[in-house]
Design a protein around this nucleic acid. Sequence first.
DNA 1: GTCTATAATACGATAGAC
DNA 2: GTCTATCGTATTATAGAC
Lengths: 217, 217
Amino acid sequence: MSADTRTKLLAGALATLTGQGIAKASARSIAAAAGVNQALVFYHFGSVDELLSAACRYGAEQRVAVYRERLGAVRSLGELLDLGREMHTAERASGNVAVLAQLLAGAQTQPRLAPATAAGLALWTDEIETVLERVLADTPVAGFLDVAGLARAVASAFVGLELYEGVDPEGAGRALDALDQLSALVNVLDELGPVAQRAVRARLRRSARRPPVRDRP
Amino acid sequence: MSADTRTKLLAGALATLTGQGIAKASARSIAAAAGVNQALVFYHFGSVDELLSAACRYGAEQRVAVYRERLGAVRSLGELLDLGREMHTAERASGNVAVLAQLLAGAQTQPRLAPATAAGLALWTDEIETVLERVLADTPVAGFLDVAGLARAVASAFVGLELYEGVDPEGAGRALDALDQLSALVNVLDELGPVAQRAVRARLRRSARRPPVRDRP
DNA sequence: GTCTATAATACGATAGAC
DNA sequence: GTCTATCGTATTATAGAC
């Protein structure tokens, strides 16, 4: 059965990326993980890069679907942060963020991997953006923050923390705790009372007129 | 001259990591980039992993030294953010953050790379921590934020953004702009007036009593 | 669709001449 | 310290039997 072998190869690619890393993700090791013949990689996908690209979409779609319902139920920043921590540990265990991290590293010097990696990450940023839009709607920052940009920053930081955790688990734990503390700051703003809120809003409007320094062309 | 060859190999390793990625960082390609014989990798460093580890320290020490003086002159959060953006583009061009990103990706599945990678990253987090400690000293968050943890989060996010920029430069630009906007929020807090500041401080003290949820053992 | 066999290339690592 | 030469292995990719 062709479809079955394709699926085995996709799952094998994901398992190899998490367990062996992009440097060892060869046609042979992937086929071994999938339990199929090495030549089938090229028959079904043409090249290792195309298999990795397909596996990226496959894995991201699977994992995002798992969380879509729960993300849709989030109503406050606090709830979002709790879910974020839970997702962090769950995805670290299942190895899906690790897949994205390995492909991102590979895509830096292998442009053929870039489109699929960007698409896989986009599945996550789109979900995050929807939730952030809803959760931040009633806060003073609504209208001033580029929520789509913030969602991309959050996803990037997620990947960076995952990589950092691999070499310094204790430091990564401290980093996550610090981000929790930082988010408490936003919560504080949200419960500050109308007078102070107006002051914040006015101050934000003023600083919004002088846009931040850019260093891109 | 032995020292000269060693240095050539270290520089060659860094150039190969940025230009070819961890997947192609072999003794042969590194030696080619360094302009020396392939066998010298093993004579001077014993193995490719040990050369990569040494190169990580070498590169991080070099780049951190470049910024130490300027980081020491930073007195406000705004100045720090401007310098941060400048460092982001400069390091992206010089390829040093890319080296850390590639080694972090490799270290996930090659534990021999982990200690040196963690040490290289620690050089950056230590610097960031010192500056953050000074800059945040007069803000309401002083005493509530774990600055060391925050420094690690910042460094991780830096790496994550670098990787993301490689597959979606426009999205990465939006993410950086959103972080600028977010930091404006902290600036606002800092210039809020004594009454509101006291309210923030009190509210932070309350939320500090109920520490954030942890998901680590 | 799946297998074996194979070609051409690249790899880590070492032995030994200089 | 540096070089050449080399062993054994792993790689991508294809040709052809079944």
